[in-house]
Design a protein around this nucleic acid. Structure first.
Lengths: 343, 343
DNA sequence: ATCCTCCATGAGAGCGCTCTCACGCATGTG
DNA sequence: CACATGCGTGAGAGCGCTCTCATGGAGGAT
């Protein structure tokens, strides 16, 4: 409760407050001797720096806001959010930054959040899962708050971001289906107000065309990034085009939903219909059969988000940084399994 | 960036710093006149109090730690966590408290978290989804940090908690199955190192015995609170006792998994086997057929967690408080639907 | 030996806020 | 009319820390 102060440590170590402060903050110009005695005093007294006092003078809060502006249902049905959050948590912990979680679901809450975030309570903000033309990133940036966005930022926003190679991932998935000899390849898209959903669809279309075929919007249906949406989309697709022999779903969760719909319609996977998901989340391994999927490391995304933000904060600049992470197609049973396999 | 200070507001309003402070903090003894001019000045300058400065003198941080010590996979596959978190978020927002999220997954991280939480960085801590005999609640409490636990606290820990009526909920679910004339009622339990899982199983057993039947451990199998676990548990149960005609699953997610297993085994729901879940989360409505389920409001749980904690902090006492929330059985198609229905 | 340099350290101001205390003025009482 | 009462307000200390600037002493150059 009543933590010892710098002053107390200084007295115990027989040095001045300033020296203790230097030791605590790792200043190089300290004699090993005094450093040692200070460290001992710190350990003995169980000293922990007072964040508030430090923040007051440094004008840093040692904490980062993480905003998720998404209906609860969606947020946590999909492991995606958890894993990104987890990566952020790891990235921040390494620098002793606190993660302040802000969940806003109504315009009223969003206003409150914006006020909080621009009120100097956090050193920077990570936003992810943005929809449409959310003005929040620009708003924060114009108030001088460092911002980084997970995924492609809203159109026109000049902010830093960390994204994955959505288009390349989608192309590799569809190429894989093509190489399997599939000819009627459908796609279940995400919520089309999100850039990731649009970009994955673009990759799908490009791969189809690159193979000399024509795209057909009858083979595209939105699954809203949810399991049920995926299932429903698959039902619609089967109704429209019963001859579908492959599906590329823009998330594993939707792919899992699609599997249910396929079974309900009496199709076998991968024999009748090959299925590829996206994310390679834990879900991909838990479906029957296991899903081929475009792997992205959500945890790395989270960690990079933290890194880019901390970098921006440290540099005190307004430079727009971005990081694009690779994806990799993982082939499993839902498309017939890996090419060769012993035993 | 350079926010105006109290001083600046005071000058603009022609009063002293103290008066502005009183207005900001809602002190009653302020003349309406000066209050008004201060408020105008605040609005004009866009003044936002500096949290750090305030925290320094009040020794409050206006922030609450929320700890989730759970493997990421589990956390976010189940909407439960999201909804409780959401409730906490709402409860804290009402009091302008920041939510500091701490995710710890390894013993090392847990130590770091403990150090942070006892370091005076937060005014209180909410813990949920505790396993086994986690010493964290006691540890925090002994360091004078106000704590409240979601769910039944570890055995012997004298800490405040918010829980739901697990036993009553389980009993009502099983009674419902009994009233349907089902005779071979199985249960899929959660992770048995968690009190909620054990208590729900106890409710199941009590209801069976109260109906004059005997319990049979062959009819009990753990599903580990995951979808796949539920599916697997159902497969085992069917193998052991092919004559099962009803299942009570300790979570909707496991019930959803059980449905898959039942279909794979060629059973119909609710005709061959009636299924009841627990939580009444969004999942219950998205399965085919919709799940009967024991409703608990996870958002209310979260809000109560926040309330109890804030109350404890305000009172500066060590009183152990607890809140038990009601549950309610919601009957849907997975047990044959509501008793009567028009149209 | 004298001066200069340089490095480790100490002294002290001040970050923005709250809160106690004292003061002045209006009102009520004898 | 003198006095107590009380309410609204201002002055000022101080929360724990960082950081600038001054200081003293060791060591090298002359």
């Amino acid at each position: 409760m009543s933590n010892p102060t710098l002053e107390a440590v200084a007295r115990a170590a027989g040095v001045s407050r300033a020296t203790v402060s230097r030791v605590v903050n790792g200043s190089p110009k300290i004699k090993t001797e005094s450093r040692r005695s200070v460290e001992r005093a710190i350990a003995e007294l169980g000293y922990v720096p007072n964040r508030a006092a430090r923040a007051l003078v440094t004008r840093r809060n040692e904490s980062i806001g993480v905003v998720i502006a998404e209906p609860t249902g969606r947020i946590f049905g999909d492991p995606y959010f958890a894993e990104v959050l987890r990566g952020i948590s790891v990235g921040l912990a390494a620098r002793e930054q606190a993660l302040v979680l802000v969940m806003s679901q109504s315009p009223e809450e969003e206003r409150r959040a914006a006020r909080y975030l621009t009120g100097g309570h956090v050193d920077g903000v990570i936003l992810f899962s943005l929809h449409g033309d959310d003005p929040l990133p620009e708003h924060l940036k114009s108030h001088g708050v460092p911002v980084v966005v997970g995924g492609e930022p809203p159109h026109g926003a000049r902010v830093s971001y960390v994204d994955i190679d959505n288009i390349g991932g989608a192309i590799s998935a569809v190429n894989h289906l093509i190489s399997l000899g599939r000819t009627r390849i459908a796609t279940i898209t995400g919520t089309l107000d999100m850039p990731a959903a649009v970009t994955r669809r673009r990759g799908y279309r490009e791969a189809i065309r690159a193979a000399g075929r024509t795209t057909d919007t009858n083979l595209e249906e939105s699954g809203g990034f949810s399991r049920e949406g995926g299932q429903h989309a698959m039902e619609i697709l089967l109704q429209r085009c019963p001859d579908i022999d492959a599906v590329f779903a823009a998330s594993d969760l939707m792919a899992a939903g699609a599997l249910s719909a396929l079974y309900a319609a009496g199709r076998t996977v991968p024999e009748d219909v090959a299925v590829v998901g996206f994310d390679d989340s834990i879900i991909a391994l838990s479906t029957q059969p296991a899903l081929s999927s475009v792997r992205q490391s959500m945890e790395v995304t989270g960690r990079e988000l933290a890194n880019v933000l901390l970098q921006t904060i440290d540099a005190r600049d307004q430079i727009v940084r971005h990081v694009i992470l690779e994806t990799e197609l993982i082939v499993r049973q839902s498309t017939g399994g890996p090419p060769t396999r012993k035993s």
